[in-house]
Write a protein that binds this DNA or RNA. Sequence first.
DNA 1: TTGTAAGCGTTATCAC
DNA 2: GTGATAACGCTTACAA
Lengths: 336, 336
Amino acid sequence: MSTIGDVAKRAGVSTMTVSRVINNSGYISQETRERVERAIAELGYVPNALARSLRFKRTKTIALILTDITNPFFTTLARGIEDAASEQGFSVIFCNTDESKDEEAEYLSVVAQKQVDGVLLVPASSSAESVAFLRERGIPCVVLDRRVPDSAVDTVRGDSEAGAHQLTRHLLELGHRRIALLNGPAAVSTAADRLAGYRRALDEAGLGSAARVYEGAYTMESGYRMALQLLADVPRPTALFAANNFIAIGALRALREAGLRVPDEISLAAFDDLPAAIMIEPFFTVVGQPAYEMGQQATWLLLNRLAGQGPTEPQEIVLPAQLIVRQSSAPPPAAR
Amino acid sequence: MSTIGDVAKRAGVSTMTVSRVINNSGYISQETRERVERAIAELGYVPNALARSLRFKRTKTIALILTDITNPFFTTLARGIEDAASEQGFSVIFCNTDESKDEEAEYLSVVAQKQVDGVLLVPASSSAESVAFLRERGIPCVVLDRRVPDSAVDTVRGDSEAGAHQLTRHLLELGHRRIALLNGPAAVSTAADRLAGYRRALDEAGLGSAARVYEGAYTMESGYRMALQLLADVPRPTALFAANNFIAIGALRALREAGLRVPDEISLAAFDDLPAAIMIEPFFTVVGQPAYEMGQQATWLLLNRLAGQGPTEPQEIVLPAQLIVRQSSAPPPAAR
DNA sequence: TTGTAAGCGTTATCAC
DNA sequence: GTGATAACGCTTACAA
């Protein structure tokens, strides 16, 4: 790759003159400009952003650290982020932590070294460490999808509590009295919030003592295992509330293997929709979150911070979750 | 962010000594090392990878340029890539071109400026420009999923021709004689290859003149439109071959709106599977490609190149596509 | 075992 | 209008 020096030599000028042409700064005679531009074209010169960044202390690059891009919710989120970032000339480095705090710490260290201008973080745990790490190093950060309780940090997330409340109420209104929650890891705020919404709905219905909560991971395997466990319970729940889409899919598999028809014999509703795009036959009753918009808004917030714009106090943007009733939920068998 | 100089000052040594501690190079007394390490910890110092890269001319970063991460095929591919890259300490910058050559060119320029060590490219067109751009600048590149005919360049892709042949044969064997292909853009090699496989199967069956080809884009909207068009044809095809998953989904919508039952009244088969993960009820008969492995292999190939390993001539790795017969294909109505 | 100087590719500053 | 110089943070080569 040729350098600014190569261009300068070829055009018979100094590097500064080339720099001025590239950046359209300062005065330059028409003739010199043309000579330089010709040299640039002939050499296929592209400026070295590393050198530039070293001076400016800005890389025009942000990091996106999430748990698993393969989950359609995060895929859509990522797309919203990349669109919003590239719109303003920023590049996005993406990292999958698989919910591992160690992976997260490792990635944070790498992107800090690479001098990213900011970080969009879906934290693997509610602990304040990661946010503190970034803050100590002066790297702006927006937390996505989840809360980090003891940190004053910008956050963009869905309303898990209200969404879970809505979904639980929906099941209650169908007539269910034994509703089990197949939850994610307690250390993740969305799991805590969905549990809270679930409990509140039960409490309001005077069924607080009927709560049945399983704790697992946000994966299909975990959903499968929790459902198996639950099927052994007596009396068996008549409805399941899966705390995310992957848990729902795993649970559905377990139910089918057990020969239970959904929703005729047991209802199943979930948090997080699957994109309409890839669903042949939308089946699950869900509470959907606006993933794309969430990504967009988080990116705008972060880039505004980088530009020194907006209020100084940390923002918390909570996007509404929306109940979409489809086929996987119905009144309990007894009620029909 | 503190610099190596700050650490040196605090530890009362020169920057070189700090550098030696960080990189475990050269001799250092135990006592000095400890003083330096303490200073590093106290300052929360992380080395500036920009400065390092400027010297080494290696950024340990690669770019992934694809059309749309939201397509499950590419999502899985991306995950395979990130896993393989991070395994070896590389970061991945990801870019969505939406099949636009201009976007692609823009992204290529940006990542060239950012001095990425290599590029994984799903080219928006078969033209050799992008590959040439990278080659001129000495940036190693592996082309993914698609061929770039007139360039000697490393390529990792699925066997579109054989896959399309297989799928078409499957429909022929079911008894279909009027099989329409809803194809992607002719400028993309996968579309050309799928067309070739389709034609070969028809020719072998002596039905070459029965070919019915629609050209569109690899999107749901396009699938929808092509299916509408096709439904007006007389006589109507009894089977549809959608050249990718999005086209299939769009086409299915059109068929349903027209009141046609699949597969009873019309069959529909497609290239590219939807991940088992996110399918509640696998429905489409498809030819699936090993997306994750494709990403992995491409990354290994690229990183080997960066390490100066492997044969010098361009590699072409073609992974097999596999027919998975499910519910969306059945014998034509007449045959039952 | 530790330190000094030069240079990676840019650009801000100050001269001419 | 244009150019020389220094600096961004780091490491290689050479000295001490």
